[in-house]
Design a protein around this nucleic acid. Structure first.
Lengths: 141, 141
DNA sequence: TATTGTTATACTCTATAACTATA
DNA sequence: TATAGTTATAGAGTATAACAATA
């Protein structure tokens, strides 16, 4: 095996990194009284409005039955709204509230601080290439 | 928020990437009849021999009680050995067998093929910087 | 008959705490 | 009393299937 390949597997390196990111995010989310799934929902609704719960579930890679509790919590907290669709009474139209938008952006700002602290370990040039690369891989998904 | 910061959260981008990596690795592992934890154990024992099961569990970020089933399977398959330590009869000394080493390296080779296929989406310069960066973040952990 | 949202059930992981045998 | 390995129990998270209302 060539020296270049003498490195841990990609997944073996990414998993601890992701765990570390989640570990610093959880307290931030707790401060704002939202769960990880809740924040994921707020982010999706803020960036790319979706009509139905099924479409939302699909967008965040979850099962439609799995997000119901999350939606209940977000609705109770006044962060999203579920209004019956008059054109198709099976559907409940989803939307983020102004309060939900404020929470989402506030959480994101706090998370960015932690992310930047972690990324500071990288030389600036590599840092840019790293961000460009995961963005690239993420978009190509 | 500045344009540079208009990107998904790091964790939001890394999570799907890790999921994709795991998705391609699982069939490879299944072909070689080892679990994800089993492969993790083989990797650790091959690279950095550890004496006790507790030390191994610590090295792979698991609880000592969680790896026992994995060790049983690996031992039954002849991939590792557990020999009682004559100096401390509470301890069972761990070692990877030649067969275990062959399996580990065979799996790694197959995984690399899939990893490289995914990384081909990146321009070569970025690809190097990306690998250097996650290695950097991983080692600084 | 198919689809939306919901609820219920079962299954997998994981964390924790007990237990034994040694020290 | 403390530690290594093991087993047992309980909890969280998830997937799947069934269900009622509507199309």
């Amino acid at each position: 095996m060539s020296p270049e390949d003498e490195r841990p597997d990609l997944a073996a390196m990414l998993a601890p990194l992701l765990r570390a990111l989640i570990a610093v995010e959880l307290p931030v989310l707790a401060e704002h009284d939202v769960s990880m799934w809740g924040y994921s929902v707020l982010t999706t609704l803020d960036d790319t409005p979706v009509r139905t719960q099924a479409a939302l579930a699909d967008a965040i890679g979850a099962d439609k039955s799995r997000i119901i509790g999350t939606l209940d919590e977000l609705q109770d907290a006044g962060l999203i709204e579920r209004t019956p669709d008059p054109n198709d009474r099976r559907v409940r139209l989803l939307s983020i509230t102004p309060k939900g938008r404020r929470v989402r952006r506030s959480v994101r700002k706090d998370i960015r601080v932690h992310e930047n602290r972690i990324l500071e370990a990288l030389p600036p040039a590599d840092r840019q290439a790293f961000l460009r690369s995961i963005r690239n891989l993420y978009d190509a998904r």
